[in-house]
Design a protein around this nucleic acid. Structure first.
Lengths: 208, 208
DNA sequence: GTTCTCCTGTACTGCGAGTCCAGTTGACAT
DNA sequence: ATGTCAACTGGACTCGCAGTACAGGAGAAC
């Protein structure tokens, strides 16, 4: 396919890689344009400033994550129409996909932005917020459907449960980055899967 | 007590607050010394460079977290000698402590460092790594003791379960920062508590 | 052959990190 | 009283990077 991505996409590719490796501030425009093979002026032609770059990166990242979730949980639902089983399959697929990434998940642009807050304008922060809320809503809806059919073993706040998917992933990415391990993210997703399984699987207490 | 912390501590206090609000790079030495009321030269008298500041902040943060865990899980164990119940009490206490922080948890220096990697030298990264591994070991040991007495309902990787405590906390802090909510961190810790409860509580399948 | 998009090149401002170093101030020691 | 040491101040400097300004070029599209 694309032997040549357009320059703007090329910049985003290079920038994303560098930012996830080193942090946003630590990535200079100088090195980005060197890697892309354009001039500094060329960069500023495409992006007003670094803030615009951050915004574009975030938008792209959020879209990609949404597409990944659509794909994984869509496929899972096709495999099994039961909402609980679909969720469990989806989480397993997700863990597999994340484990198969060549160098482990590179990190989350959302968290990167969260920890370098002041660099970004309100728009960027708002974008970030909306993405997290959308994921909460997405997973909450899925858990609601499950909870209707399978009463949870413990009382549970479905918003918190929805947040847990993004939260566990974010946290695991941090751990993975710090530890330099490749398996951590998948392992944590599988822990979450076990939780969901236990929470919604039919069972009876051992004692009356 | 301390009407006057010494200057070095004062710098660390001011810097930690600023860094967690804005990110490390976005915090200038200029504004730190202005807030502390010393000169730039005064700053460099105490810290060789910003890296030294980061290292000192990390060390302090890790020590404080360890002290918090010692306190919370120590108290929990005093309240109940059963390892599972102590863990459940400890997680509840932890959620309460974190929820009671005035402005929510300010963020995690570990994650902040993880996402601004290149700024720091190997020593800082190693420090970070050791802290995460120490927490893994700490919680793993607690879960091992629990698993001996209460066979887990699902096969579980105890390292991953140990990591989950720091991981869920890290992830929740990110969510909380992005969402601007105060309850997220406590809610996520309570989700983890529910997972632990379900995983280790005695039960029997509903059908033969 | 004009116009538009996508650049290049140069030259500039301004900020913040980090260095160097000379000098000050107050406490404490002898 | 004298010396000395830790904890600073102040000023001057270098360097790297973000961002601005603007003039101009190369190629496709009409």
């Amino acid at each position: 396919m694309s032997g040549k991505p357009d320059t703007k996409t090329h910049i985003l590719n290079v920038a994303e890689k560098a930012v996830l490796e080193k942090g946003f501030e630590a990535t200079s425009i100088e090195e980005i344009v060197a890697a892309v093979g354009i001039s500094r002026s060329g960069f500023f032609y495409h992006f007003k400033d670094k803030n615009a770059l951050a915004r574009a990166m975030l938008e792209r990242y959020i879209d990609a994550e949404n597409a990944l979730f659509d794909d994984v949980f869509g496929r899972a639902r096709e495999l099994n129409d039961d909402p609980l089983h679909a969720m469990l399959i989806g989480l397993k697929l997700l863990a597999e996909v994340l484990a198969d990434l060549p160098n482990g998940h590179p990190g989350c642009v959302i968290a990167a932005a969260a920890y370098q807050d002041r660099l970004f304008d309100r728009g960027v922060r708002e974008l970030n917020r909306e993405a997290i809320l959308a994921w909460r809503a997405r997973f909450r809806a899925m858990f609601e459907e499950i909870a209707e059919r399978y009463p949870p073993a413990e009382p549970v706040d479905l918003d918190a449960l929805g947040d847990m998917v993004s939260g566990v992933a974010e946290g695991a990415i941090v751990l993975q980055k710090v530890l330099g391990e490749r398996e951590t993210l998948a392992a944590q997703i599988l822990q979450l899967r076990t939780y969901v399984k236990l929470l919604f699987s039919p069972r009876a207490p051992v004692s009356a």
